[in-house]
Design a protein around this nucleic acid. Structure first.
Lengths: 224, 224
DNA sequence: CCCCTAAAGGTCATATTGACTTAAACACCG
DNA sequence: CGGTGTTTAAGTCAATATGACCTTTAGGGG
């Protein structure tokens, strides 16, 4: 029984996922999602948090962590029957982590490159990553987790950039602002402002109390 | 490693869940969700389908089955560390199943009674059932699975009754009809009709090709 | 002091929803 | 054979939400 983690962050205007280069067999040297065995006395969530730290030196306290599901096809691991519980983590632009015990190194990779097959992942991690990606995209529609990608305080432009990076589509700044501000509990103004490199200062917000957005903030379906 | 099943159906105007009376220790004689050990050579889904049949003689071919998640707290099972993968199943009004090997008997119980604590479930099954219930309610909003509760063909009133039973709230028949019919791929007319005990004949539909509803069919939030 | 840029705020046509009303189709009853 | 009750089916209308687009504001830099 193992846990595997799909850890996402937004850097610049790209959605990134944390990958490791495996330092042990099987799939030695191959790219993979961080993860490892669950210990006997810990919860699945605690196991995920521990692996997060061991393999990538990422502190779980600051990021959103939720279970994605169990992957247990008998042939998914060449070593034999290994069921893995996949977790989804979202965090602000984190420092590039160093490798851990079972990982030669850890690094952020653009999700688009991994999905396109430019990098080949070990095990059934391509499927896990695909499911995780769809889940994040869906979560942004129906919940207020997008703020988990931002720092403690953020501007509405930063928040919009998160949506654009995750969904891969342009959003009208004005309509986005209207939707976010009139959705009760989405964000809470701090009263402070931040100066962009150029242009008018932007108001700063912090995450609100709401978890669900109703009505949701739907992405366009066409995407041609 | 086990699988547990939260199997729902709509009977009359009530949402029902399939329970078993445990025939073995621990929790002998207690009500529980059907489930059992996963075998070495089967997928998690196949294990769920097998347990479905063994413990409740329910044929999985006709119902919607999806994974809910993994429950793995170290103390959830008095026997020791047992991680269970919970599955959610939705089906039309099924015949009352007989008990299986590890179950003295199997029966349908109103979900409301179980949630209220009138019946106490074994293990952490109360939490699993609560999660399953919320998942069904959410699924009805964003997907077209509601038809899984109906037979091969059904009237719009039957479909609306499903929503009302699951959400526990009244829906305006006229607005429901408009929403369903104008949502592309939700239902497909068969051309036939069905005579109710009294009143105008109702057109029959079968499930359409759509999986997701966009925009979704949201339930009211207040429900006071 | 003017220009450029991004934030902030507004307009307007369109789509969707909730509450409500009206018409249609059948069985039953006298 | 026509009236009555019941359920399906269809329509109206105001309130709300959305997408596309425009104008104003508040900075920095030349």
């Amino acid at each position: 029984m193992t846990v595997d983690l799909a850890i996402f962050t937004v850097r610049g205007d790209q959605l990134m996922v944390l990958l490791i280069e495996r330092g042990v067999e099987p799939f030695l040297g191959r790219a993979a999602l961080p993860g490892g065995y669950v210990q006997k006395d810990e919860t699945l969530r605690d196991g995920a948090l521990r692996e997060l730290w061991e393999e990538a030196q990422v502190d779980g306290g600051r990021l959103h962590l939720e279970q994605l599901g169990a992957y247990g096809d008998p042939w998914r691991d060449p070593r034999g029957r290994v069921v893995t519980i996949a977790y989804l983590a979202l965090g602000p632009d984190l420092p590039t982590p160093v490798g851990g015990t079972d990982a030669r190194r850890a690094y952020w990779a653009p999700v688009s490159e991994v999905i396109n097959g430019v990098r080949e992942l070990a095990f059934d991690h391509p499927a896990i990553l695909a499911d995780a990606l769809e889940e994040v995209r869906r979560k942004l529609e129906y919940t207020a987790v997008a703020a988990a990608f931002c720092g403690e305080t953020f501007t509405l432009s930063e928040l919009r950039t998160v949506y654009e990076a995750v969904w891969g589509q342009y959003l009208d700044p004005s309509n986005f602002r209207r939707k976010v501000l009139k959705t009760e509990g989405f964000v809470r103004p701090t009263g402070e402002r931040r100066l962009p490199p150029t242009g008018r200062p932007a108001a700063l917000y912090r995450r609100g109390s709401a978890d669900l957005l109703s009505p949701p903030l739907l992405r366009r379906v066409d995407e041609s």
